[in-house]
Amino acid sequence: MDTKGLVNQDFTLLFDDEVSTRLLPKWDPIFRSNVIKEAKQLTSTPELRELVQSAESQPGSDEATTYDKEMASLLLLLYLLPPPPGGPKSPKISASDAVKKLVVFHKSCCSLEEHLRNQQCQQPYLLAVGRQKRNIDSFYISMDKHLIPCQANRFIGAFDELFKAHFVFNASYDRALVHFYTFLQTTVYNIDMGKMKESPRVQDMRAKLLNQEVLLTTLS
């Protein structure tokens, strides 16, 4: 649990190197700009505008008011694929509330042990520790009141490890994040494509984002 890199190693053993390395080279050149474009068509909210601004920011600039551009664009995907309708035992939550089930910011001056004691989320999530959201020192996968240190020192790499942890530890996706994770599993990692049950919204979003990429490639 304390050794960095074992999540990546075990995921690669479950699949292979080619599957294990799919997110990082694909996200920025293929998906990020298209996700931003689609997110701008959503009903604007302060949280959404903040994420769009951060997703479009330049590296090292002060334009990012929340997480870095890669993580901000991933969170925009969550707005495009919001939580499913609620039920009697699980009321529907908003996309902004679902974000807190995916990544939690923790100030480096505060106690990690206290955070774990107060932990309520049952499924794995990313704990980003630093002085401010755009300046993170370290990442952990938080699961069952344990912290697994991430090997990556960037958001996109840490999130990659979070996704893989679901397979390594045989953990189900949080219900609020099921559309978001299913899209990444089938469309980005190409795991169980055509076998995994997908909502019409996930299928529609894949068609939109990949069709835009094909159009851009053709025009260029």
Rank of each mutant, 00 (worst) to 15 (best):
Pro200Gly: 03
Pro46Ala: 03
Cys110Asn: 11
Phe139Trp: 07
Leu75Asp: 01
His106Tyr: 04
Thr12Gln: 15
Thr12Gly: 01
Leu116Arg: 09
Ala176Asp: 11
Phe169Pro: 01
Thr43Tyr: 06
Leu23Tyr: 03
Phe180Leu: 01
Thr218Ile: 14
Lys208Gln: 15
Gln53Lys: 08
Arg49Glu: 15
His146Asp: 13
Leu210Gln: 11
Asp174Arg: 03
Leu215Val: 09
Leu24Asp: 02
Leu78Gly: 04
Arg22Met: 14
Lys107Trp: 10
Leu42Ser: 06
Glu47Tyr: 05
Val178Arg: 05
Thr65Ser: 05
Arg134Met: 08
Lys4Gly: 04
Glu47Ile: 02
Glu213Asp: 08
Asp174Glu: 14
Pro88Val: 04
Glu63His: 09
Asp62Ala: 12
Leu177Glu: 08
Asn153Met: 12
Leu75Lys: 07
Lys40Arg: 15
Thr182Leu: 01
Val52Gln: 09
Asp137Gly: 03
Asp160Pro: 13
Ser61Cys: 10
Val129Gln: 07
Lys89Ala: 05
Gln122Leu: 13
Lys89Asn: 12
His179Ala: 08
Ile136Phe: 02
Ser44Asp: 09
Glu63Thr: 11
Ile30Tyr: 11
Glu113Arg: 09
Val52Asp: 03
Tyr79Met: 02
Glu114Ala: 12
Met205Ala: 06
Tyr79Lys: 11
Asn135Val: 00
Lys89Val: 05
Val19Glu: 07
Arg117Ala: 08
Pro84Lys: 08
Leu127Ser: 08
Leu215Pro: 00
Gln120Asn: 05
Glu114Phe: 10
Val129Met: 01
Leu147Cys: 12
Gln41Phe: 02
Pro91Gly: 06
Lys26Pro: 00
His166Lys: 10
Pro91Ile: 07
Ser33Pro: 01
Leu216Gln: 12
Tyr173Ile: 06
Ile141Asn: 10
Ala128Asp: 06
Cys121Pro: 00
Pro200Leu: 05
Leu42His: 04
Ser54Pro: 03
Leu81Ser: 12
Asn170His: 13
Ala128Pro: 01
Cys109Leu: 11
Gln58His: 09
Thr218Lys: 13
Ser220Val: 01
Leu14Lys: 13
Asn170Leu: 10
Ile191Asn: 02
Glu114Ile: 12
Leu24Tyr: 07
Ala72His: 05
Ile93Arg: 14
Cys150Asp: 13
Gln151Ile: 02
Ile148Lys: 12
Asp144Asn: 07
Lys89Cys: 05
Met1Gly: 13
Asn135Cys: 07
Pro29Gly: 04
Ser57Leu: 08
Thr66Pro: 00
Lys100Cys: 06
Gln123Trp: 10
Gly157Ser: 09
Pro59Met: 06
Asn8Met: 07
Thr12Tyr: 09
Gln132Val: 04
Thr186Tyr: 05
Lys92Asn: 03
Phe139Ser: 05
Asp160Gly: 10
Asp62Leu: 11
Ser90Phe: 15
Asp17Gln: 15
Pro88Trp: 09
Glu70Phe: 03
Gln58Pro: 00
Thr186Trp: 06
Leu76His: 08
Ser108Tyr: 07
Arg131Leu: 12
Leu209Cys: 10
Pro149Asp: 11
Lys164Met: 15
Leu215Gly: 00
Arg154Val: 12
Gln41Cys: 14
Lys195Val: 03
Ala64Asp: 14
Val35Gln: 07
Asn34Gly: 06
Pro46Met: 02
Lys101Ser: 15
Val202Ala: 03
Val35Ile: 15
Leu74Ser: 08
Gln119Leu: 15
Leu23His: 10
Thr43Cys: 00
Val188Gln: 00
Arg206His: 13
Gln185Tyr: 02
Leu209Trp: 03
Leu126Glu: 02
